[in-house]
Amino acid sequence: MNKCPKCNHEQDSGKFCELCGTTMASDVPAGDQVKQETAASVASNVPIQQSNIDVKTALKDFGAYFMRLLKNPSEALSSNENLFLNGLINIAIYVIALAIGLYLLINSVSKAAMGFGSMLGSDMNVTVPFFAIVFRVIFITLLFVAIAWVSTLAMSKLGKSTVTSKELIAQFGGLLTPFIAINILGILAGLAGSIPTTLTLMSLSLFFVTFMLPVILVSEKVKNTSNQKVYLSLGSSALAMFISYIIIRSFVFGILEDLDRLTSFL
C-alpha cells in the first residue's frame, strides 16, 4: 500500500496520487531501503576495485618482464605471441625515451648557443617547442624501428622461417630492453646538460636498433631452416641501410633544414 505524502491518501498501485496527483511515497521500510542503497553502492564499487587490482598486477608483471630481459636479453629470442603486448609497450617506451632525450639535447644546444650569444652582447631568449620536436622525433624513430622490423621479417621469411609477425614483434620489442636503459641514461645526461654524452648514447642506441638487431634476430630465426644464415643476417642489415637511405633522402633532410632554420634564430 502506497501513501500520498501530501494528502495521506492510500492506494494499492500507481506512481501518482489518485486525488491530488502528487508522486506517491514507496512503502519499502527505511531499513530495507538503506540496505538496498548500500548493496547498490558496493556493487558499483566492485568493478572499480577490480580494475585497480588488474592495473597493479599488469604493472608488476611488466616490471618483472622488463627486469628479466634487462639482466638477460637473450630470453627475448624465445618470446612467443603471448608477449606481443609487452613487445609493443617496449617499442613505445623506447621511441618516447629517445624522443625526450633528443629534445633535451636540442634544448641544451640552444641554451649553450644563448649563453655564447650573451657573452657577445646579444640578448636572445628562444624557447624550443617541446611537442613539435618530440612528436617529430617519435615519428622518425618509429620509421627506423619499422625499417628494422620489416628487414628482419623479410629476410626471415626468405630463409623459410616460420616466425609470425606477432612473435617477431614480441622478440624485437624484448631485445629493445637494454637500449631503453641506454635511452634513459641519455635522458639523465640531457637533464645534466651533457651534450656529447647525450648525443653519443642516443646515436648508438638508434644505430644498433636499426642495423644490428635485425642481424641478431635473423641469425636466430633461420639457423635451423637455411644454410645461408650469414648472408641472410647481413642482408637484413643491408636492407635496413638501403631503406633508411631512401627515407633519409626523402624526409629527414627536410626536417634537418627545419631544425637548421630554428637554430639560425639562436
Rank of each mutant, 00 (worst) to 15 (best):
C4D: 05
P5G: 11
C7T: 08
K15I: 05
E18G: 07
C20F: 12
G21T: 06
T22D: 10
A25V: 03
K35W: 06
E37R: 14
A40Q: 14
S41K: 15
S41H: 14
V42D: 13
N52E: 15
V55Q: 14
M67E: 11
A76I: 10
A76G: 09
S78Y: 13
F84P: 09
I91A: 09
I91H: 02
I96M: 06
L98R: 00
A99M: 03
N107R: 07
A112M: 11
G115L: 04
S122A: 11
S122W: 03
D123Y: 06
P129W: 06
F130I: 11
I133E: 05
R136V: 00
R136C: 03
R136A: 05
A148V: 07
V150Q: 03
S151L: 01
S156H: 02
S161Q: 05
Q171A: 13
L175I: 09
P178M: 09
F179A: 10
A189F: 09
A192Y: 06
G193E: 05
S194Q: 02
P196F: 03
T200P: 00
T210F: 08
V218P: 14
E220N: 15
K223G: 10
L232M: 08
L232H: 09
S236H: 01
A238M: 14
M241L: 15
I248T: 12
R249W: 02
R249P: 00
F253L: 10
G254I: 00
